[in-house]
Computed example of a mutant assay.
Amino acid sequence: MATNPFEDADGRYVVLVNDEGQHSLWPARIEQPAGWELVKEESGKQECMEFIEANWTDMRPRSVVAALAG
């Protein structure tokens, strides 16, 4: 039975960001999807999660922030 690569506590991950500033924890062994930029090199899941918590402080997409700012 295959395990979900997104749920592997012992897996290796990277952090990706899209044009809207949204972050994603991504398994390092899976090809990076188009439209996403690598912002944290490969490391453990916990380290990547801590990076996301420290750097993605406003969950609103950039377009929403810009629209609200006028």
Rank of each mutant, 00 (worst) to 15 (best):
W56C: 04
A54P: 01
M1T: 10
R62C: 02
E7K: 09
E42H: 01
S24H: 06
P27E: 08
A67M: 12
N55D: 05
A9Q: 05
A28K: 08
V64E: 05
E41A: 15
E53Y: 04
C48A: 15
Q22A: 05
S43T: 15
R29Y: 03
E41K: 14
K45W: 05
A54V: 04
A34C: 08
M59H: 10
A54Q: 14
R12E: 15
T3K: 09
S24P: 00
K40T: 02
A66G: 00
S63T: 10
D8I: 09
M59D: 09
A2V: 03
L16D: 05
D8T: 14
H23T: 07
Q46Y: 00
W26C: 10
S24N: 12
V14C: 08
V39N: 07
R62F: 04
E50L: 09
Y13D: 03
F6S: 02
G11M: 09
M1H: 04
V39D: 07
G44R: 11
L25F: 03
I30Y: 11
V17C: 05
A54H: 06
W56S: 13
V64L: 08
V14Y: 01
L25H: 05
H23M: 12
E42R: 07
L16S: 06
W36R: 14
E50S: 09
G11I: 07
R62N: 12
Q32N: 07
G44W: 03
Q46D: 04
G44I: 09
E31R: 14
K40F: 03
T57F: 04
P33G: 13
V39K: 03
N55K: 13
G70S: 15
G11D: 06
A66E: 14
P5T: 03
T3R: 09
V65C: 02
